Computed example of a mutant assay.
Amino acid sequence: MVMNGEFFVIKEMHAKGMYITYIAKEVGRDPKTIRKLLGQNEPRRYQRSNRRIGKLDAYKAYVGQRMEDGCLNAVVIYDEIKTKGYIASVTTLRYFMRPLNPIISSKATERFETEPGEQAQVDWGHFRVDWNQSQKRLYAFVMVLGYSRTLYVEYTEDEKVETLIGCHERAMTYFGGVTRTCLYDNMKTVVIGQDEQGEVIWNERFAKFATHHGFILRRCKPYRPPDKRKS
């Protein structure tokens, strides 16, 4: 079963005139599955299944690392991963990078050097796709491990707290566990505000979820651009 976001990406690729066999190769699925999906008006509800490994999966951690290093040029990264054995097209790479670009470009990403299993960083990306002659807004849940920089990305149609919880659960399954702490920006589904002492007020439902799974919530420090005034 494909994720909702992947469903709309497949629809968008087909709307741009890409053949079914080409789309199937790019996303790592059978052409019969693609043809069946294109016959649906809406994605089916998510059900856990054994997903076929995509051609880009083995390179996602490297791509995420290069983007954090400041390289947002898909062609440059494409040339690099081709030498490592990547055999799909630059188009597939661009589709993966697109929801990550706003996260990395909108703020200076601070590199956290942590011990294995110590910390993960979580954020939402958002982008639009063509859908029924209009624009549809999609979201990308992104979790990256502080030590290995391994990425988990999941496309969704909303950023509600129940969606966020589900994404965390699937990320935990993907990583095979949970880090001691998880670091968040001012995500409205996680951070409600702060009290008079400046302490974070967490979303109660999400805080209970974190307690149940045994990880500690942390908020990113507000980013302050460097002082460029001459001394």
Score class of each variant (00 low, 15 high):
residue 102 P to Q: 04
residue 229 R to P: 00
residue 49 S to P: 00
residue 206 F to S: 02
residue 84 K to I: 09
residue 119 Q to D: 03
residue 59 Y to I: 06
residue 172 M to W: 09
residue 33 T to H: 09
residue 64 G to F: 01
residue 201 I to K: 11
residue 113 E to L: 14
residue 106 S to P: 03
residue 9 V to P: 00
residue 182 C to E: 14
residue 121 Q to E: 14
residue 122 V to R: 01
residue 139 Y to I: 01
residue 137 R to L: 14
residue 221 K to S: 06
residue 144 V to T: 15
residue 194 Q to T: 11
residue 97 M to C: 05
residue 11 K to Y: 02
residue 161 V to D: 06
residue 2 V to N: 11
residue 31 P to G: 08
residue 69 D to A: 11
residue 17 G to D: 05
residue 6 E to N: 01
residue 142 V to S: 14
residue 126 H to P: 01
residue 127 F to E: 02
residue 43 P to K: 06
residue 170 R to S: 08
residue 187 M to D: 12
residue 188 K to W: 02
residue 1 M to C: 03
residue 193 G to W: 11
residue 23 I to K: 11
residue 122 V to Y: 08
residue 44 R to S: 12
residue 84 K to S: 04
residue 33 T to Y: 05
residue 134 S to D: 15
residue 109 T to V: 13
residue 165 I to S: 01
residue 168 H to S: 07
residue 176 G to S: 06
residue 148 S to N: 08
residue 71 C to S: 11
residue 231 S to R: 12
residue 34 I to G: 05
residue 67 M to L: 07
residue 197 Q to M: 03
residue 208 K to Q: 12
residue 216 I to K: 10
residue 31 P to A: 09
residue 105 S to W: 02
residue 185 D to R: 08
residue 205 R to A: 13
residue 6 E to C: 00
residue 115 E to F: 08
residue 218 R to K: 15
residue 217 L to E: 10
residue 92 T to Q: 14
residue 141 F to I: 02
residue 165 I to Q: 10
residue 165 I to M: 15
residue 72 L to V: 12
residue 134 S to E: 12
residue 116 P to V: 11
residue 2 V to A: 04
residue 211 T to S: 12
residue 80 E to P: 00
residue 132 N to T: 12
residue 191 V to Y: 07
residue 68 E to H: 08
residue 109 T to A: 05
residue 133 Q to H: 09
residue 58 A to T: 05
residue 167 C to G: 02
residue 220 C to H: 03
residue 114 T to C: 13
residue 128 R to C: 08
residue 58 A to D: 13
residue 221 K to C: 02
residue 70 G to D: 07
residue 132 N to C: 11
residue 49 S to G: 06
residue 189 T to N: 10
residue 83 T to K: 15
residue 169 E to L: 15
residue 50 N to C: 03
residue 162 E to Y: 09
residue 23 I to Y: 11
residue 32 K to L: 05
residue 196 E to V: 10
residue 207 A to I: 01
residue 132 N to L: 04
residue 7 F to E: 09
residue 100 L to C: 08
residue 81 I to T: 09
residue 122 V to M: 02
residue 133 Q to Y: 04
residue 214 G to K: 06
residue 16 K to A: 03
residue 144 V to W: 04
residue 209 F to G: 03
residue 174 Y to C: 09
residue 107 K to D: 04
residue 34 I to M: 03
residue 69 D to G: 14
residue 43 P to W: 09
residue 107 K to N: 07
residue 193 G to F: 10
residue 13 M to E: 00
residue 185 D to V: 07
residue 50 N to E: 13
residue 70 G to W: 07
residue 194 Q to K: 14
residue 41 N to T: 07
residue 144 V to G: 01
residue 99 P to W: 01
residue 229 R to F: 05
residue 37 L to C: 02
residue 160 K to N: 08
